[in-house]
């Protein structure tokens, strides 16, 4: 656990994650932050408790007579999964490792210029999650989009005019945030940055191609 985390995920986002209404890309950032932060973990588990209480008290629909025996058949068909897996040593929080592997060295970076690199994660299309590598002293690239943007620091630190974000910290910004974050402390900064999908572009694309393909 890291006691030094100062910038947390908001309660809105934790609740959206608890209810299952958060896009996959943002969910990776929330799950990764929670893995590092007991403060947010306890809040998330409280939102889960609310879901558990609602489910137990306010939903009830009779299941088919054979549901129990069918469940036992399923259990018997799949006996090998009940042992805890041994955890691999990883450069990343576990939920992120599921997407990018365990080693920083193996990341397939794509250069963005000025030494800045990115690696886009494969997720559902409603949000885009990417790893960013920013060399010491360099500026973060302008990856601002309309809408919500989460940046989780994985290694190093960055700072803008107002604040300083170290390992485990999350910066929550919307489209109107105007700033130029810089990698601090003479070290490169590695972040997970998640942005909402640029829906406006997609709509325009459809408008442009519609007359051509007559849909």
């Amino acid at each position: 656990m890291m006691e030094t985390i100062k910038h947390h995920v908001s309660d809105d986002l934790l609740m959206a994650y608890a209810t299952g209404n958060l896009a996959e890309g943002f969910s990776i950032a929330v799950a990764a932050h929670v893995s590092m932060c007991d403060h947010c973990r306890s809040m998330l588990e409280s939102f889960n408790a609310l879901g558990g209480a609602l489910m137990e008290q306010y939903t009830n629909i009779t299941v088919a007579d054979c549901a129990f025996s069918k469940t036992l058949e399923r259990i018997n068909a799949c006996q090998s999964v009940s042992q805890p897996e041994k955890k691999l040593k990883s450069d990343f929080p576990e939920p992120l490792s599921d997407y990018v592997g365990h080693s920083l060295v193996d990341i397939k970076w794509q250069p963005l210029g000025m030494g800045v690199k990115q690696a886009v994660l494969e997720t559902s299309e409603d949000a885009t999650a990417r790893l960013l590598y920013i060399p010491a002293g360099a500026e973060m690239p302008d990856h601002s989009h309309r809408g919500l943007e989460l940046t989780l620091v994985l290694e190093g630190a960055f700072a803008d005019e107002n604040d300083y974000f170290a390992k485990g910290d999350v910066e929550i910004a919307d489209g109107s945030t105007n700033h130029t974050p810089v990698a601090m402390d003479g070290k490169p900064c590695i972040c997970l940055a998640v942005t909402e999908a640029p829906l406006k572009f997609r709509k325009m694309f459809h408008r442009l191609i519609q007359p051509l393909i007559r849909i």
Binding site: N48, G51, G52
Partner: peptide, 15 residues
């Protein structure tokens, strides 16, 4: 110590 049975089962159902 961290969840009731209902809470834990809810998280599995939600996923």
């Amino acid at each position: 110590t961290r969840a009731s049975a209902a809470t834990w089962i809810f998280t599995i159902a939600r996923n």
